[in-house]
Design a protein around this nucleic acid. Structure first.
Lengths: 275, 275
DNA sequence: CGCAAGATTTGAACGCGTTCAAATAACTCC
DNA sequence: GGAGTTATTTGAACGCGTTCAAATCTTGCG
């Protein structure tokens, strides 16, 4: 199982600090993040004030800012955690299935399920995530680790599928990223979805999966070649460069190239930004 | 609409109010909006405080809130103005052209040109526009008028084109909305574009237009029929209902005959032939 | 005119995210 | 241990968007 990265500040194991005094600050950092995430879940993003987070965590508000540059940076914890959950869930559910459409739908359904608890205030996240200047943008470099994990899931969706004759090489290489983009569309749809239990999004996904599979299947036929060519070229030239390095297997095929766990730190190394 | 510019906040009466005594409040409302838009352009959205707007307009901050529910509602002015500018510009530039790809590219280029002055703080607009709860969302009912205008432009793009044999009826009806969605994608691309003068977006548009035209042209062929069918059905079922009423014909919103004849409303009597 | 009932306008006040100089704790090297 | 340096923590303060009770202006009507 190619674990690409582990969400950094998660420390579910409540270990007493007998020896590691050095980890004192990391403990505070984690405490703040955990408190924030709990309050976000309880009250929503907007209703959760920095003062409340600090107070609940038993620290001062200034201290929260010592570890996190701003309120929005606390969302990254959610982002990372959900991505990880989604990956685990999707892998488990896909096991044994070999039909591409089915695997794709499972992957997308898993996302909707994992995200469900946060739907009511997802819009509040989305607002800041939509800011191109924000580190939370799904295209930003800061969210690269989570994006890489998600793309990897779709690579596995493909790898586990019996797709028949091989596809156009370029398209084949692009597909994981394209499917991730498809997920982004689903996310957009989901955020705007106001139906009970986001039923509409679920129906949308159910409808999309076979459609996408059909397109992929048809892409092999001669008549579609020029279109596929055009599309892949366009995406390669205009879309992929805009999303921070996703390291599509071009250089050293994906699987092996992900050994660099160094990126795992979302909040950066040392918080010293004052002189 | 460049009406009366009142750059001097000291002289309150550039024109005597002989008759419109009732319009006093509308005058204040307009003054606030104009001031806000000027400051947005000068300093950007975030840097323009409500206090500054009120101060520059010579009213109290509370008064601004009497006329506008919040800061974000002042953006709507921009939105509407730009939409109008874009429509005028696009119509002028399209005049005489009959090639679909060319007309489409003109329409999109016009948008990029009209939006150019605001690019540096477009992200700040975009952030609030991305909130599904916001009235500024391009899908919201509040922005329906602007959206209708934009969709109309794309209807004219089609009406003025020589598209050859008639298209699938369903697709034909959907196309204006689809092209508007395409514009939304371009907008998304533009917002994230950091190149000089958004050159990348311009290249993207240049590349997209013929591609879209090709897809439309190919959609007529037998082989593509199932795909087109699937796509149009999906869009009709899942996409269009989520964007507030677009009011296809504005008069007869019949599902059947589709009042294509009644569209010439703002077209300006250019009866481009398509059949 | 007088005067009650809106419509409009005001500015202080609230709660928020964020900043910062200063206080305190922890660590290093002699 | 102690002096010097760095890491962490504090809470008051700033500027912001927004709210609201009260003040002021307009209007309709006897």
């Amino acid at each position: 199982m190619p674990e690409t990265e582990t969400p950094a500040p998660e420390t579910p194991a409540p270990e007493p600090p007998p020896r590691p005094k050095k980890a004192k600050s990391e403990q505070t950092r984690a405490l703040i993040l955990e408190t924030a995430m709990r309050l976000f879940q309880e009250r929503g993003y907007d209703k959760t004030t920095m003062r409340a987070i600090a107070s609940e965590a038993g620290v001062s508000v200034g201290n929260a800012y010592y570890y996190y540059e701003g309120k929005e940076f606390l969302i990254q914890g959610f982002y990372d955690r959900m991505t990880h959950e989604h990956a685990t869930e999707a892998r488990a559910r896909m096991a044994g299935k070999t039909d591409f459409a089915e695997r794709l739908q499972i992957a997308l359904d898993s996302w909707v399920d994992c995200a469900a608890p946060y739907h009511e205030f997802a819009a509040q996240f989305f607002r800041t995530a939509a800011d191109p200047n924000s580190a939370l943008s799904p295209f930003s470099n800061e969210s690269h680790p989570a994006r890489a994990t998600a793309v990897q899931i779709f690579r596995e969706v493909l790898d586990g599928s019996e797709l028949g004759p091989k596809l156009d090489a370029e398209l084949d290489e692009l597909l994981p990223d394209l499917l991730w983009l498809h997920l982004m569309v689903v996310v957009l749809y989901w955020v705007f979805d106001r139906t009970e239990d986001t039923e509409r999004t679920r129906a949308f996904v159910k409808r999309c999966a076979p459609f996408v599979a059909k397109i992929v299947a048809l892409s092999r036929y001669r008549v579609f070649r020029p279109l596929v060519r055009d599309a892949t070229d366009m995406i390669q030239e205009f879309v992929l460069p805009t999303i921070g390095k996703t390291a599509v297997g071009k250089t050293a095929v994906g699987k092996a190239a992900v050994g660099k766990a160094a990126v795992g730190k979302t909040a950066g190394g040392k918080p010293g930004r004052r002189s």
